[in-house]
Amino acid sequence: MTATSAAPPRQLAALNPIQQLKAGHLPRRLIQLYVGLVLYGTSMGLMIQGNLGLDPWDVLHSGIIKHVPLSFGTVVILMSFIVLLAWIPLRQWPGLGTVSNAIVIGLATDLTLATVDRPDALWVRILFMLAGVVVNALAGALYIGAQFGPGPRDGLMTGLVRRTGLSIRLVRTTIEITVVAIGFALGGVIGVGTVLYALSIGPLLHWMLPIFTVRLKPQAD
């Protein structure tokens, strides 16, 4: 037995909204939360402007609007509430991050689309696509790791990870591939960016999330 034991691994805590606010490191966690959300919206804007394929959830949204008289944004909102229903059996708690997800990401996406033009050069579009995927993983690790409650779709992932004991890599990749398959069946358009995102976001998030997960103080029962 060595003189100094290794630090325990950083894990996502199952906290209710009040516990999330009382879990310590509040200034750092708030900054990390909102930096992550802004970067998440920026990454979505880059993928859209790259025009080489939507991320899996947006493939699903684009497929749904072909069958219902609703706008893209309305479908995104409705899907968020549907996904939140899946949190109930997973005992996944919402929080400040869950609410902020729906507001800040949309604003950051719109700002990116308004300030970043769609490039003509293929190599720049490829760069946008690659940057979008990597920045999206970093952003997800930042805001999920702040432990204020994930967004509806990421909460589905973290809830399944906690309940099944499977890896983030496996759960996230399975969700993304399933969503793409359903979206494509409904008529959603996919591209090389969609495939790259679906196959790489799970491993990237699996690697980054432990780095940015804030270790919280123990909560009383």
Rank of each mutant, 00 (worst) to 15 (best):
I18W: 14
Q20D: 07
L21T: 03
L21N: 01
L21S: 04
L21Q: 02
A23W: 00
G24F: 04
G24L: 06
L26P: 01
L26R: 10
P27R: 04
P27F: 03
R28H: 13
R28E: 11
R29T: 06
L30F: 14
I31E: 06
Q32V: 03
Y34K: 01
Y34V: 14
Y34F: 15
Y34L: 15
Y34D: 04
G36F: 02
L37P: 00
V38P: 00
V38F: 10
L39A: 10
M44P: 00
G45M: 07
G45R: 09
L46K: 09
L46S: 14
M47W: 02
N51R: 14
L52I: 11
L52A: 10
G53R: 08
G53C: 06
G53N: 04
L54A: 12
W57N: 05
D58A: 11
V59Y: 04
L60E: 00
L60T: 08
H61G: 10
I64N: 08
K66Q: 15
K66C: 05
H67S: 15
L70Q: 03
S71W: 00
S71D: 15
F72Q: 05
G73A: 08
G73K: 06
V75W: 05
V75P: 12
V76F: 09
M79W: 06
M79D: 03
M79A: 13
F81L: 12
F81H: 02
I82K: 01
V83W: 00
V83N: 00
L85T: 09
L85R: 02
A86W: 10
W87Y: 05
I88M: 07
L90C: 07
R91Q: 10
R91T: 11
W93L: 01
W93G: 01
W93N: 06
P94N: 08
G95D: 04
G95N: 05
G95R: 00
G97P: 07
T98G: 05
T98M: 06
V99Q: 00
V99L: 15
S100N: 06
S100Q: 02
A102C: 05
A102R: 01
A102D: 00
I103M: 10
V104T: 13
I105H: 02
G106K: 05
G106Y: 06
G106Q: 09
L107T: 14
A108Y: 07
D110I: 14
D110T: 12
L111D: 04
L113Q: 06
L113M: 12
A114Y: 11
A114P: 05
V116Y: 02
V116D: 10
V116C: 07
D117R: 11
R118D: 09
R118Q: 15
R118S: 15
P119N: 12
P119T: 13
P119A: 10
A121F: 09
A121D: 14
A121E: 14
A121L: 12
L122W: 02
V124A: 13
R125N: 08
M129E: 03
M129V: 10
L130T: 15
G132E: 09
V134N: 01
V134L: 15
N136E: 00
A137S: 13
A137R: 09
L138I: 11
A139D: 02
G140E: 01
G140A: 08
G140L: 06
A141V: 04
